[in-house]
Design a protein around this nucleic acid. Structure first.
Lengths: 155, 155
DNA sequence: CTTGAATAGTTCGGAATCCGAAGTATATCA
DNA sequence: TGATATACTTCGGATTCCGAACTATTCAAG
């Protein structure tokens, strides 16, 4: 049965095959995420992973392809749980920098490591294929962030 | 600034780079989907695209990595809007086959074509890279569908 | 310096989505 | 014949997410 699906898929355009793979991987990864860290929601995990260094909330919103109001809610939750703090940006008192606490940095390390394993298991790719996929994925992401956000916000 | 992001990303593991690319692409595609077809929700689009031929709802659920109750709601909406009909599976009277109407098939063709263009624009990949990405994506999807659904349902 | 417009983030209300548990009908097996 | 498993549905609730209106600050023009 899986073979049937695969064969039918092979008749579709490369773009659609790519999309279906992306959707399957996204859904699978989201499902896997739900199984590891009890007290963090998915968005909270995503935000932690993105916070490799202090970032302004607007930058983070652009980075996560979402709107500021969504960032606020997630940052509130992470701050309340002690994973990060808000610090005023010295360059612009309207803006806040989100800075990981020690607890936050530790959680982020765990997440990055675990997420890597999840990807490995979910994708089933070997190291060479993973590297190849990563190269293309990086290129895609660069393109999206560059051309990305449709109205305004582009800065 | 985009360059900074890209450079930091390059220091991450290939797996995380791959994940971030997948997430960015998924979010971007979802956003793009919202701009094309006014009277179809995202899930309805996904389901139409999957219905390249009549399928049982359970098969469709596995195919979309979700649970049957979610399929019911989406199928209800598509049926009410005249895109598909439910037909009893002659082999098993408990099961329903979802069959596209002419309107549904037409909508599906439009969607598949448009989605291809969306992928092309969002990813920014050329034909060769797209083919390469599609090959890996197909492999990933096969792996997920094979090992995929965690408890039961695996059949 | 003052005023007006733009920007950073917040609040709030509502829409959409999706899952899990319980229920109905049918199939399968002992 | 009866017990168990399967296919789908219904329903209730939790989560997520966006857009509009709002506050505080910055920036530009005069």
């Amino acid at each position: 049965m899986t073979k049937d699906i695969s064969e039918r898929l092979a008749r579709l355009t490369p773009e659609i095959q790519a999309m279906m793979g992306v959707y399957a991987l996204y859904w699978k990864l989201e499902e896997s995420f739900g199984c590891i860290d009890t007290d963090l929601s998915h968005q909270e995990c995503h935000m932690l992973i993105k916070l490799d260094q202090p970032k302004r909330m607007g930058v983070l919103a652009a980075d996560m392809l979402t709107v500021p109001s969504t960032i606020t809610a997630t940052a509130d939750a992470l701050e309340a749980a002690g994973y990060l703090t808000r610090q005023q940006d010295p360059d612009d008192r309207r803006a806040w920098l989100l800075v990981l606490t020690d607890k936050g940095a530790e959680a982020r390390n765990m997440l990055v490591t675990t997420a890597g394993e999840l990807f490995h298991r979910a994708s089933g790719l070997d190291d060479e294929e993973t590297a190849q996929f990563a190269r293309l994925a990086r290129k895609i992401r660069d393109n999206i962030l560059k051309t990305g956000i449709p109205e305004g916000l582009t800065k």
